[in-house]
Write a protein that binds this DNA or RNA. Structure first.
Lengths: 237, 237
DNA sequence: CGCAAAGTTGAGCGTCCTCAAGCAGCGTGG
DNA sequence: CCACGCTGCTTGAGGACGCTCAACTTTGCG
């Protein structure tokens, strides 16, 4: 069973350490946020960084001509606001999906502290680097995987995220609609629905409840196998 | 005519400033690199950051099951190596496409200097943030644009990059093959070729030479119009 | 209970991919 | 010098994957 390990994972330890450093050294505020709340919006002046202590937040990236896409999903320990640093303005909306606690603090305060606390600076950079690496992997999936594999890859990503944080991950609750998932994965909501049906028919996933919001994943390895099978099938004529 | 302005652009000024700060404070080495050279490879231990003083470099992101994608294209002033910070290992290959000069230096040296030079730290963060914002826009294009628009968007991005740096941008020389462009944009090389033909037939672009490596862009605005037309056409049934 | 929002499933169609053929540029060697 | 092969590019024909449109079911909420 691949559920909660009772030793904190390295990632969980790192998150705890980061939160502790922030708490000790950076003047900050905490806020409980609820589904629908916005931490910031595209175009607003950037001054604050946010760190998620619990809950789930999505960022939405839009273009001038009205297209938009769910750019990222953020869990406990994730930082938000990086994309505002360069231009001094936020480039996306941050919308709360599931209730949680957000810590927020001025970016310039953080920088001042970082000059004296190399460890904190390292955590900051690591968080940013991790997000870049994650984005790269998302792009790879967008560009190279057929829809079914993309959905499977998405689920694996979610599972991994939970595992890293030492959370139970044999059964996950998507708090996103099919439309949001589809938008994130560059496909329609119908395609998401069909892909899930196919995954279930091959027993890669299972729906424990009648409402198909919860997803059980008996074997994580099966997800990877499924992804490979899809890509091979695509290559073979 | 939208060619070289003889005032340095804000971006060009910022690049010059960054290079100067690095030169003054960070112990570094310079190297002339040629097409085919690799700055680093996925899996290698990360210790060095790189800054491109001239030339063109692509990064390639691969997965365990053999898929790969051109993850980014890097011009003068761009930093390389961010994705290695988190894990301590590079996550992509960096391959030189066009001859240029690379400056490289230890990441830990940079950090040491940054503690004393807030300006340099700010440039470092800005570069990282800019790359994240760019990746987000790439993903938006991948997820929401039809092939023709994606190619147009790619060209516009290239043109903008040149313009920011104060370079001539009414005629660009792609130093990538159709296959590389297609890989970057999540489509086949044939689709790239067809898209370019269609763009040319609508006079959005022009091929000055017989070998269609150079592309002339009479009106940058026409690219944006073309992109919008594509997306509207897709929406209208 | 009734309405709105979310999800599933099917049929038809279009975009984009696959496969294949042909052409152009270029360096090599006979 | 030209034949040759190699790589890159274009163009066409056919097919598949995923989208659109539509009907229906289920869930959630006032």
């Amino acid at each position: 069973m691949h559920a909660t390990s009772h030793q904190p994972t390295p990632a969980a330890r790192q998150i705890a350490e980061t939160l502790q450093l922030l708490e000790q050294h950076v003047p900050m505020q905490r806020r409980v946020v609820h589904a629908g709340d916005r931490l910031f919006q595209a175009g607003e002046r950037f001054t604050m960084m946010h760190v998620l202590n619990s809950g789930l937040i999505k960022t939405i990236n839009g273009s001038t001509d009205g297209r938009e896409r769910v750019a990222g999903l953020h869990f406990k320990g994730d930082w938000l606001g990086f994309d505002g640093i360069a231009s001094g303005r936020h480039r996306c909306d941050a919308v709360v999906i599931d209730t949680g606690e957000v810590w927020w603090f001025r970016y310039d305060s953080l920088m001042a502290v970082c000059a004296l606390q190399p460890d904190l600076m390292a955590m900051f950079h690591a968080a940013m680097s991790r997000e870049m690496a994650h984005d790269r992997d998302s792009m790879l999936a967008l560009a190279t995987l057929p829809v079914d594999a993309r959905v499977a890859d998405f689920l694996r990503g979610w599972v991994d995220t939970l595992a890293e944080r030492g959370l139970r991950n044999d059964c996950i609750t998507l708090r996103l609609t099919r439309a949001e998932i589809g938008n994130y994965l560059g496909m329609t909501l119908e395609s998401v629905s069909r892909a899930l049906t196919r995954l279930a028919s091959k027993s890669v996933i299972r729906f424990p409840e009648k409402g198909r919001r919860d997803i059980e994943i008996p074997e994580i390895g099966a997800l990877d196998d499924f992804i490979e099978t899809c890509t091979e099938a695509a290559l073979a004529h």
